[in-house]
């Protein structure tokens, strides 16, 4: 694998965030942490959008990842952060591999609706499962990393560092993937599925593979979110959550893996700011932003950068 400029930039970003962590004010650590969790999920949304597909049910994997992490703590008493993320990867990988077989044939609003239905099925199950706290969910706490105990006072920093590492690895992986032959197929599928088949590649298989990757990314984001917030509930798979991921993906654009990460940060900033100063209008701010982006910046915020570079 050859490293290009973006790959180096991703690694550099990760290193800087990691080193800067202890020096940053706690509000900024919190904001970055949530952004990285979200950003990882939106990396997956971006991959789907490169295929021309929008999921209105990615909360499903965000939630599954979080519950996989939570159950590891709750049921198996193994509150290890790495294991939690690992469990999320396995669970979301398996579930998406199965559901992907059904979804890979669907496009446009039918894909959106079926993915929505799947996520709402999980929602319906969770809200009625008393042993998992029903609508209230339950608390999650991670106490070790790879078997090493983490002192309570350094817990937050540890969770943050882990989010940095996983988001960086995810972005690095996705960037390499998109630059690969397999990854290039995504854009080709978006443009012309017929031609892809007549060049000898299976559109179904490619979409399935990309769906699984995007689901696993959402699962990682969910597990990180669970240990970050310390609490999980079925709202994670309720449709407005999935809608929020769509929102961030549109806001970000799909031009680069930096877009979802940056977009997630902008989103978090808008949210914290609006929530603090005007809690009853922050959704309105989001809605208006989304409309403006769709009308004036169809390539998302990322297109501001590329436009500048070209000009």
């Amino acid at each position: 694998m050859k490293l290009d400029r973006t790959s180096f930039a991703i690694l550099a970003m990760g290193a800087i965030l990691l080193i800067a962590g202890p020096a940053l004010p706690s509000w900024m650590v919190s904001m970055l942490n949530v952004s990285l969790c979200y950003g990882t999920v939106v990396l997956g949304m971006m991959l789907l959008m490169r295929n021309g597909i929008v999921s209105f049910g990615h909360g499903l994997y965000f939630c599954l990842g979080a519950y996989a992490a939570g159950l590891l703590d709750q049921m198996l008493k193994m509150p290890d952060m790495l294991l939690m993320v690992g469990a999320a990867v396995v669970v979301t990988g398996v579930v998406s591999a199965i559901l992907g077989l059904l979804l890979a044939k669907y496009r446009d609003i039918f894909f959106a609706m079926l993915s929505l239905a799947f996520s709402m099925i999980l929602y319906g199950l969770l809200v009625k499962t008393a042993s998992l706290g029903s609508t209230d969910g339950f608390n999650v706490a991670a106490k070790t990393v790879a078997g090493f105990a983490v002192a309570p006072e350094s817990q937050r920093l540890m969770v943050y560092s882990l989010a940095v590492v996983f988001a960086t690895v995810s972005a690095f992986f996705l960037h390499s993937y998109l630059a690969s032959h397999q990854g290039r197929l995504a854009g080709a599928i978006k443009d012309n599925e017929l031609r892809v088949e007549y060049m000898g590649a299976s559109v179904m298989r490619a979409v399935h593979r990309n769906y699984v990757i995007s689901a696993v990314l959402a699962g990682i984001g969910g597990a990180l979110m669970a240990v970050n917030i310390g609490h999980i509930d079925p709202e994670m798979t309720y449709w407005p959550q999935s809608g929020e991921f769509v929102f961030v993906a549109i806001l970000s654009g799909t031009g680069s893996v930096f877009a979802p990460l940056g977009g997630a940060l902008v989103f978090e900033a808008i949210r914290s700011f609006a929530y603090e100063y005007s809690p009853n209008t922050w959704q309105m701010v989001l809605g208006i932003t989304m409309l403006l982006v769709m009308i004036f910046l169809p390539g998302g915020l990322w297109s501001l950068f590329t436009r500048k570079r070209e000009g």
Partner: peptide
């Protein structure tokens, strides 16, 4: 039947990649 949003180079690289 082209990949309209991609460059000419990428249109052909898709095929190379599939092979």
């Amino acid at each position: 039947q082209l990949f309209n949003t991609m460059t000419v180079l990428d249109n052909l690289l898709v095929g190379v990649g599939i092979v």
